[in-house]
Design a binder for these strands. Structure first.
Length: 196
DNA sequence: CAATAGATCATCT
DNA sequence: GATGATCTATTGC
């Protein structure tokens, strides 16, 4: 198993930067949930109330409260009544920036991922797409609002690993501001939800 | 192979 | 009661 030996947990400073910067820097980082882990290969930035495509556009509601809260927390919501989607809350407390995790490269716990997604699913498809990766990792509403520093979900970096080439494209699957280039993909990764 | 309809529910109006 | 930051199956070239 190509599970990197020495990992460094990201701290709050990583997440309290500009949303766009966090989205870009998150590509290549490693998400761990229980026994499963994967390298992040695709993210999208959602900026806050000024971003019509963001949930925060509606202002503070019981659901989006965590978006406006302190950084380094997980925001999990149900999409289309079917799929859970995972976000990192970032920017200083009071801002509503967040980073949607869209695709992972499975590193560990692949057997459990298959158990949750179904046997016979190709590795490249196990965690390709925001709904797919949460199902594979077993992420749902109970992770909403948990800390990325001390909760069940953690994010690590691999010291010494080169930063990947990153392609920037418009965001996917939204109806407003579809042309804003806020999607970050590890260039050429077969694990991304679409070709770059 | 490309296009599209349907699933399904937490949250908001 | 309407609405999606989606995915999959199915239909039609």
């Amino acid at each position: 198993m190509a599970y990197p030996a020495s990992l460094l947990r990201l701290d709050e400073a990583f997440f309290s930067r500009d949303t766009e910067e966090v989205a870009r820097a998150s590509v290549g980082k490693i998400l761990v949930c229980g026994a499963s882990a994967g390298r992040i290969v695709e993210t999208e930035a959602y900026l806050g109330p000024s971003d019509r495509a963001a949930h925060a556009w509606h202002g503070i509601t019981p659901r989006t409260r965590v978006l406006f809260g302190p950084p380094a927390h997980a925001y999990v919501y149900l999409s289309y009544g079917v799929h859970w989607c995972l976000n990192f809350v970032c920017g200083p407390e009071g801002t509503a920036g967040c980073v949607l995790i869209r695709a992972l490269e499975p590193l560990a716990g692949i057997a459990s991922m298959r158990r949750r997604r179904g046997a016979g699913i190709a590795v490249e498809k196990l965690t390709s797409g925001p709904g797919n990766l949460t199902r594979a990792m077993g992420i749902d509403l109970k992770h909403n609002g948990t800390s990325l520093l001390k909760g069940p979900l953690r994010v690590f970096t691999e010291p010494g690993s080169p930063s990947p080439d990153i392609a920037v494209t418009p965001r996917i699957g939204i109806r407003h501001n579809c042309d804003w280039p806020l999607r970050f993909v590890a260039a050429g990764s077969p694990f991304a939800s679409r070709k770059s």
